[in-house]
Nucleic acid binder design. Sequence first.
DNA 1: AATCTAACTGAAAAATTTTTTCACTAACCC
DNA 2: GGGTTAGTGAAAAAATTTTTCAGTTAGATT
Lengths: 145, 145
Amino acid sequence: MDDREESLLDSLKAHGYRLTKPRQAVIRALATAVKPMTVADIHAEGRRYCAELGLVTVYRTVEMLLALGQLHIVHLDAERHGYALASPGHVHHLVCSRCRRIIEVTGCTLDGFLDDLAERTGYRITGHRLEIAGICPECRAKFES
Amino acid sequence: MDDREESLLDSLKAHGYRLTKPRQAVIRALATAVKPMTVADIHAEGRRYCAELGLVTVYRTVEMLLALGQLHIVHLDAERHGYALASPGHVHHLVCSRCRRIIEVTGCTLDGFLDDLAERTGYRITGHRLEIAGICPECRAKFES
DNA sequence: AATCTAACTGAAAAATTTTTTCACTAACCC
DNA sequence: GGGTTAGTGAAAAAATTTTTCAGTTAGATT
Ligand SMILES: [Zn+2]
Ligand SMILES: [Zn+2]
Ligand SMILES: [Zn+2]
Ligand SMILES: [Zn+2]
């Protein structure tokens, strides 16, 4: 079990949730993923750790982790989205358009821009979502010759 | 008919699409909207302009406008999304969390950050999605006393 | 203006995705 | 170990999206 997985389990406990086997399976599926996971992905992968894992529990656990801020939605193509674990605090994600390999991005530099924007528009800015698309080094090596 | 609506119709023609009444109804619904529109929103609003407008045509027209780059997906809360017309070129959207009033944002300043990111990660950066949430001036006046 | 024809349409059906319900199970506190 | 109650999976229901298809209409051609 890696650090992230362990800290997630701690976080559940701290919020009064029970550490059930199905939940642990969902968390392990997410913790070992290298790409954004759809609900179906999580279900399929999670069954490796808990054979009876139901789809409903995947939905419920995802919702719980989102509420705890531990999971981020990552938008894939036009309509589909997946989920990726995220470190606490302000992070974004960079996803390979070819293989979906995902990495977390810290050090967002949007503050100045958003301050300006607030002044120009009169909106009070309360948050933002940034997702970055690219081609990972492995895919560049394979496909950009 | 406003400029944006007219240029959209021109764009359709230029791409060899027919200017049918149902399509015009969808486009007008989008052109007059002040918030991101879901498929159901577009359908309901579009029927004001074409009473027989079918839901299927809304789906098809939305897909078409997305492919033409004239329409952007805007993610609302966790799972839902809507559509908003977007000017050609690189723009983002700022949405009021309370009333959903949406405005287009130009002058994205992410280039330097993304260049750095490319260098740090080895990814070739190919695009990004930025959505900004806030409270519009009207809602601030009403609810922030 | 009448005619032609393929692009386009809406309704219905089918497929897919998500939520609700409910009787049963197991995690955790004692 | 035993009790309690949050949590579970299966099934049903609801909601959303896609496919199919016979009929319609926009726009080109006379
Ligand atoms: Zn890749
Ligand atoms: Zn940021
Ligand atoms: Zn507002
Ligand atoms: Zn940008």
